[in-house]
Design a protein around this nucleic acid. Structure first.
Length: 490
RNA sequence: CGGGGCGUAGCGCAGCCCGGUUAGCGCAUCUGCUUUGGGAGCAGAGGGUCGCAGGUUCGAAUCCUGCCGCCCCGACCA
């Protein structure tokens, strides 16, 4: 078993933490609640970014950048938005430090800002105060903008990637001339997220809309994708909001329509964050470490030479060169680890820990036989192949691994998804089995709150892809037209 | 904000209760030799304001007081 990784079954959250740290993805920093994303972890994030960015551009969006600091007065304009975020805002009040006589550095009280600046927890307010200047006519619409940025939400309890005070994300902010168009945009971006989660992260998700109480502060409707982690808990992996005209009204953003009449602009916003890293880790990894889908692995394949001396290494190198040249043509990223400071076994364990999808090992024995050993990270299978044609095998293997990882996660979710018709049944599942539970709910926040209080489970979303089904609320017995998705959540 | 725990070498910890040689162990690091198909072995070496400040004492990592920081559990939140 891997050195120093707590077993998943033993202590799930410790297992998660161990993987993040031991696989060199991130570590806690000296700053409370803020992490350092290490090169290997950042490389995965860059892959996530690159693909999402491509998908945003494909759907007509452009990138821009808005300020980190938001004047308090802007922030205060949309009432429910303030309610939602006020309790977790970092605020800049001064702009200068000074030295005291005994050499300490203190805030210079004479350098107080006229107006405090809120460090953005999200950018709706600064963006809509800007859009006001950009929009006069229906001809200026739609505006389809995304920004890659950091945001700060002062969290009381933090966990690497899943919840940190500062995190990286992207936030799309669009402006439209009609409600229908904005609603379509909200749905479209949720589809983009779902496709990314399933095709790239190999993580099946449930698309749906949030209940009123889980809605984004300032939105009329919030859509989400929800994924199941290996402990059966749900993780919200992306959200897309239909903001109606709330921000347009708050910032007085109007346009003249084709009939010459003034109207408020319709808005959406949508985002995913470095939390996806947490989802990726918890969806697939095992007791040996990280398991990465090939499409997001910074290194898709590692080659480990087994050699006793320089001479053997150079013979192996020659053979490996032929393989790597073909891999380059196939666009497969690889690493040849010829360090003589670590022995092969050490390297095997290290790359397993780091989740590299495929490993090749080649020594003198192989060269004599014209063979090479191939090991899959997802199944931990090892097989000997002829060197000849190994590139073709690898090319076919990558999508197979991607698919297998997805299928594993899909099967796991299916096995841990239940239906409950009575509250007794429901409580039993949540307490003893965990996982997702589909149940009828009367649609009221009161019932939702009661369930949360008694079981800790919340409505993750009201799934789109679920058939209508007449039933009665498991608490109140009132009629319900469809089931909703309950789970304990991150 | 409430409850609990911890602060001693880069990391993980012991020592503290019951004060007394030169503060110790594992991992990691460095050097040398032997090794190399699943986290190498042996020999040697380097590395410490014992969280900070004050007090008690002939003497404090150890006892007392205050402060600071971090972690875990809960409440809050996505």
């Amino acid at each position: 078993m891997s050195k120093g990784i707590t077993k998943r079954a033993e202590n799930y959250s410790q297992w998660y933490n161990d993987i993040v740290v031991k696989a060199d993805l991130a570590e806690n920093s000296g700053v409370r609640g803020s992490m350092v994303i290490k090169p290997y972890g950042y490389a995965i994030w860059e892959k996530i970014q690159a693909q999402l960015d491509f998908m945003f551009k494909e759907t007509g969006h452009e990138n821009a950048y808005f300020p980190l600091f938001i004047p308090k007065s802007y922030f205060a304009k949309e009432a429910s938005h303030v309610d939602g975020f006020a309790k977790e805002c970092a605020v800049v009040t001064h702009y200068r430090l000074k030295n005291t006589e005994n050499g300490d550095i203190v805030v210079d009280e004479t350098a107080k800002l006229e107006e405090e600046l809120v460090v953005r927890p999200t950018s709706e307010t600064i963006i809509w105060s800007t859009y006001k200047k950009w929009i006069q006519s229906y001809r200026d619409l739609p505006i389809l903008i995304n920004q890659w940025a950091n945001v700060v939400r002062w969290e009381m309890r933090t966990r690497l990637f899943l919840r940190t005070s500062e995190f990286l994300w992207q936030e799309g902010h669009t402006a439209h001339s009609t409600a229908q168009e904005a609603i379509a945009e909200t749905k479209q971006m949720l589809e983009v997220y779902a496709e990314f989660a399933e095709k790239w992260m190999a993580m099946p998700v449930i698309k749906g809309s949030k209940s009123e109480s889980e809605r984004f502060a300032g939105a009329l409707d919030t859509l989400s994708i929800e994924a199941m982690m290996q402990d059966g808990k749900a993780l919200q992996a992306g959200t897309s909001h239909f903001l109606g005209q709330n921000f347009a009204k708050a910032f007085d953003v109007k346009f003249t329509n084709q009939d010459g009449k003034e109207e408020f602009v319709w808005a959406t916003s949508w985002g995913v964050s470095t939390r996806l890293m947490g989802a990726l880790i918890m969806a697939h990894s095992d007791d040996y470490g990280l398991v990465l889908p090939p499409k997001l692995a910074p290194v898709q394949l590692v080659i480990i030479p087994i050699f006793k001396n320089e001479e053997e290494l150079s013979i192996i190198k020659e053979n490996v060169n032929e393989i790597t040249q073909k891999l380059k043509k196939l666009n497969i990223s690889f690493k040849f680890d010829s360090r003589d400071t670590h022995r092969p076994g050490h390297k095997f364990a290290e790359y397993e820990l780091k989740g590299v999808p495929v490993r090749l090992a080649i020594g003198m024995r192989d060269i004599e036989n014209g063979t090479i050993e191939l090991a899959r990270r997802d199944t931990l299978e090892k097989k000997i192949y002829k060197i000849e044609g190994i590139d073709q095998i690898i090319m076919k293997l990558m999508p197979e691994i991607q698919e297998n990882i997805y299928n594993k996660a899909f099967t796991f979710r299916a096995e841990n998804t239940h239906k409950a018709d009575t509250y007794e049944e429901f409580k039993n599942i949540i307490e003893n089995k965990s996982g997702f539970v589909y149940a009828h709910w009367d649609g009221t926040p009161e019932t939702e709150a009661l369930i949360q209080e008694e079981t800790k489970a919340t409505i993750r979303n009201i799934p789109f892809d679920l058939p209508d089904e007449e039933g009665v609320c498991m608490i109140t017995g009132k009629p319900s037209k469809r089931r909703v998705l309950f789970a304990k959540a991150y």
